[in-house]
Design a protein around this nucleic acid. Structure first.
Lengths: 253, 253
DNA sequence: ATTCTGTTAGTAACAAGCTAACAACAGCCC
DNA sequence: GGGCTGTTGTTAGCTTGTTACTAACAGAAT
């Protein structure tokens, strides 16, 4: 079995098939059609198991059965299979979240407590950044060293809030990033203070008003981890520390 | 636990979570945020298990963790969770089928053998019908008693092929269905022969050219099962039998 | 001193993977 | 036709791995 095939099988498993089902389905796509023996030979599944596994696949609409002796099987087209699995996902997804929406507590977006939360993963942090920005009333400071941390979504959010009259300041020690920041409509740019040192594990910093902050770092495996706190006293204190390092430098738009 | 909640949990399981993960996630959505104990109380999960389960959920990007004592957890927004699971699905789906496409045997659509295949389930049969119609070269006959079996997709396929110069004939013993059939552009209509008897388990019939046929029945649980055969001698013989019952009656457009 | 937190080990229950055996049947050689 | 061989479809049962669940405990908090 090739590496690619093993990966494909794992993916099918995560889509809800068993490994036997995945193997039989792939084998049938490869064969076009075949008997239990044909399938067992190429799929590395015991022949005696092929019958029941195929039955399951038929129920799921991924293969079709020829009632003959010997029984023959054929896969549905790749397009149909994609569609079938897609529909199944949408159905489950809908059902699951329909219920969640009904029980969801109202607390969202408002009334945070004195909490510091941890978020792992670049994309999740992207989302959290945009989310925090959306609560801005007066002022935003966004800083990062690395271009990837200034996503398009974030750029757009910064411009949107600047247009809405919020004071938006962008900071970076990297020329690439600074370039892009300066091109954003309505967004001021400042270079960071020199004394920041060799902060090569720092990721990004977001300050919203005087009580919301997000700070991320990049570990040795390039994974980004952020901590954030919104509308908390804790954040205020933190911000005062951070501001001391940003403000002293001259601004330029 | 309510019935709705149990269903939601099952759906989450089918989306790749364990039942504990589903319960904890739902409990957190309900609570807004909480400690392991809070969660254990409402989620019906042993407190000692909450920690590891929550760790898993954090890795999956479905909740966030507050590193404090006691540790507190909060869910990401419902929108973020939807998005996260959706992305995961698309990723696996893509990976799985990317490989399948590479191994797919070319046999599709062409060169069928003397095979009769079985398809179960209304929607899958809908798909197969459209698929068979798409291979028409000269002539199509489509018949059904029940309105649900004449889907919009099928109506469109019939019209499309009629427009392409293929001889399309629609047949139904039901007035409702006949009405709709008559309104299709370029499609002829014929009423079925009387001697068909009390065929109350018959579903639909599709004849394409003189060598492709699909015939479905509806069982006592209202499940539709179809057999079909394309470009086969067997189909030809079958078609001659079926035609004997359709042709003798007068046609009308 | 007692309750609570976070962690660990270990068991139980179940699903999935895997093996073996067998009756029914088809082909083949004699 | 009789006996031999090989295949098919079915079933029972074992093995393995995962998840659900219980119990116990050290350290912190009250």
């Amino acid at each position: 079995m090739t590496r690619d095939e093993a990966e494909a099988i794992e993916s099918f498993e995560r889509l809800g098939l068993t490994s036997y089902e995945a193997k039989v389905f792939i084998a049938l796509q490869r064969l076009g059609s075949g008997t239990a023996r044909d399938i067992a030979d190429v799929a590395d599944v015991p022949r005696s198991q092929v019958y029941s596994v195929a039955e399951g696949l038929e129920r799921q609409g991924l293969i079709e059965v020829q009632q003959s002796s010997p029984i023959r099987y054929r896969p549905v087209s790749v397009a149909e299979a994609r569609e079938t699995l897609h529909e199944r996902f949408e159905r489950e997804h809908g059902r699951a979240f329909e219920y969640v929406e009904t029980v969801r507590s109202k607390s969202d977006g408002e009334e945070e407590q004195e909490d510091i939360w941890t978020v792992r993963g670049r994309e999740r942090i992207d989302d959290r950044v945009v989310d925090l920005l959306s609560n801005a009333r007066e002022r935003i400071v966004f800083g990062t060293r690395l271009p990837v941390f200034l996503t398009e979504d974030i750029e757009r959010a910064l411009e949107r809030h600047a247009a809405a009259g919020i004071d938006v300041l962008a900071v970076s020690s990297s020329d690439d990033v600074a370039e892009r920041m300066r091109s954003l409509d309505g967004v001021s740019y400042a270079s960071p203070p020199e004394h920041q040192g060799a902060d090569d594990r720092s990721g990004r910093i977001v300050i919203v008003d005087d009580d919301t902050i997000l700070l991320s770092v990049v570990d040795e495996d390039e994974n980004e981890t952020a901590i954030w706190s919104a509308e908390s006293l804790f954040a205020s204190v933190f911000i005062q520390l951070a501001e001391a390092r940003v403000d002293p430098t001259g601004e330029s738009s």
